[in-house]
Design a binder for these strands. Structure first.
Lengths: 132, 132
DNA sequence: GCGATTGTCAACCACTTGGTTTCATGTTTC
DNA sequence: GAAACATGAAACCAAGTGGTTGACAATCGC
């Protein structure tokens, strides 16, 4: 019924969402929009040690959000946006929910409050009686 | 230039993406589509202990993705989709990147390879020389 | 009132995360 | 060849995650 595009148990989704869950990594992704950058460029605006920054890059690589290409002594990183699109697709599965479909739930609950008979969740009926 | 709708350093985004980064929590969200459910309902298909499941629900509550309403002894949980929409908005900021804009980067790099003069990143010029 | 249901809390555990510092390695430049 | 540069790797640490178990409290049905 929902999210038929992206399955629920997807370790890829785990890694992508986890990668997006840190502001430093989101900042790295934003830096990577438009052009490649090497690790020093990525690390310098991050206000943390260089090894810490490269660990964040590695998290992004595990999530396949960043690909690295070694050129001499510099490691050029490049945004790999497909997993972002996949995460977006997963979120889109909930679009109808946040675009007002949940108001139908409101309507349903109100209906149940005014009509004590149709045997939905017992607790909902109790709630209705209590508030009456 | 990008993501002007949702700021980069947003602790709300941290919590939302972290909440989405676990399959159990995504399964809970999906269960919550359409109707409220109490904690037992949410926990039973999750193949883990009840306290573990309620911890996941609490993570979702911290991310404002779930709101809880106590009715007698049952705790009814309800999907709160606005943060999902916010995460979606953040991702949308990268849509142009994954919808082919990054091919302009390819074109730019190829242009740099064939023209050694226009002083971009030194490493890119070196790369061009090496491959020539 | 009793027993079953629903859920909380605290303690505990193994593992991961996010950060540091220090040292080593390959590369470019002069 | 030496110095500067770009990065990796390892050891370490504090805090957080994800899970368990066991004891406890409130509530509902009978």
């Amino acid at each position: 019924m929902l999210n038929h595009m992206v399955p629920d148990r997807a370790p890829g989704l785990d890694r992508v969402f986890h990668a997006l869950a840190h502001p430093a990594r989101r900042a790295i992704l934003r830096q990577l929009c438009g052009r490649e950058r090497n690790l020093s460029e990525l690390a310098s605006p991050l206000n943390m040690s260089f090894p810490a920054a490269t660990k964040h890059v590695r998290v992004l690589e595990r999530a396949r959000l960043v690909r690295r290409r070694i050129v001499g002594r510099t490691h050029l990183c490049r945004l790999q946006p497909k997993p972002l699109a996949q995460a977006n697709t997963w979120l889109e599965g909930y679009r109808k929910v946040w675009e007002g479909n949940f108001q139908r739930l409101d309507a349903l609950l109100n209906e149940l409050k005014s009509d004590p008979n149709p045997t939905p969740h017992a607790s909902v009926r109790r709630q209705a009686k209590r508030q009456a």
